[in-house]
Write a protein that binds this DNA or RNA. Structure first.
Lengths: 208, 208
DNA sequence: GCCTGTGAAGCTATTCACAGCT
DNA sequence: AGCTGTGAATAGCTTCACAGGC
């Protein structure tokens, strides 16, 4: 019922409220927060409407209150348990990026086929052999996975994850995964993103 | 005139054609390629219409021909020169991911503030000190940058890049950059993406 | 006066559905 | 018979614009 894009922007707003608003700022107007997020004020108001949050005319939005409202909406009652599969540079980048950052997203395990990595603790969580995937996912009750494995194995790893009960996958392999529709999947193909940027960059160059 | 999303999907189609179609397959129907890419056949046909490519009823699309058509559309006459700024795990992941992969996207330089990294060659391209940003970007005629620096400095680095003449930025820092509108920018905030996946994963869990 | 919340309008993206080709 | 190309319909997203509140 609530859109994909709205959820992503809400996450963005919260981050801005937490990181880029100084402690003495008590309230904010829609145009202020909107400009920080590079969206229109109307867009921001719509997004907040979607989660049933109300500000007040003349005062705008109460920073602390809004932050909490977004939290209540985005975060579940319990922390979401996350695994990162594939501990190459990208996997490690994501683990270190996220570790301890957001308390409601807990990275509780990572996986790699390389035996020199598995068994160690990387970025605060235990790295297991990929063979243990299903066992650990079930045991640790993990519902979300970040997939950073080489593309030839991405599909088969994804299927194992889903068999083990994963409900959402953030996929960095440049392969559009085919999954049953009750599993939410977000593809973040790096190559495609860069080709897109290159294309539009060239457009503006040629417009001169 | 041609949409953002279409460009990204075209890049995707090409990748599939190159990597996931065996050499003896000469032609493909829209429903086949569409299903590989997880889009509808109508969507695929529209996207190809946008670049003026035509198949033929009964034969579908000629694989080689289509691959080249997409290439003519996406790639410029000369390779696009790319820099990666910030050689942490994420920066290195992207460099190694892309190096030598796509010949029309050339990573010609990387940058880092850490003096132990600059001066070395990482993933096939020279890593420079961040002080040299403007100088090298201009000298090497770089038009696209991948930004993987810590978020507090992202905005200021972006401004330097733009002053140096960069036309497109792929931004992995969780900060919505504010840039003049003739610069194309694509934000790929990892935290927001993961929070989105976590949100929708929880939705499907609760639907049970 | 300047703000928010929101119906209505406007825009963009996707899908339908079918004529026409092979 | 089964496909493509595409006008028309639909669905989804964003902005406009203004009534109502502080």
């Amino acid at each position: 019922m609530i859109s994909d894009k709205t959820v992503e922007r809400l996450s963005q707003y919260r981050w801005l409220l937490e990181m880029h608003v100084d402690a003495q700022t008590i309230n904010l107007f829609s145009h202020q927060l909107a400009s920080m997020a590079s969206v229109s004020p109307a867009q921001l108001r719509r997004d907040l409407m979607a989660i049933g949050y109300s500000g007040s005319p003349g005062k705008g939005y109460m920073v602390r209150d809004l932050t909490e409202s977004i939290g209540r909406f985005l975060d579940g009652s319990k922390p979401t348990r996350v695994a990162v599969v594939g501990m190459g540079n990208l996997g490690r980048a994501i683990v270190s990026f996220l570790s301890g950052r957001r308390s409601h997203l807990k990275i509780v395990a990572s996986f790699d086929t390389d035996v020199t990595k598995s068994g160690r603790v990387i970025g605060g969580s235990h790295c297991y052999s990929q063979d243990k995937l299903e066992e650990i996912i079930k045991r640790e009750n993990i519902s979300v996975a970040v997939l950073t494995v080489p593309s030839p194995v991405a599909q088969s790893v994804a299927e194992k994850l889903i068999d083990a009960g994963i409900k959402g996958i953030l996929n960095y392999a440049p392969v559009p995964l085919k999954v049953p529709e009750q599993v939410y999947i977000e593809n973040r193909d790096v190559t495609a993103a860069l080709e897109k940027v290159a294309y539009f960059a060239r457009q503006t160059e040629e417009r001169e």
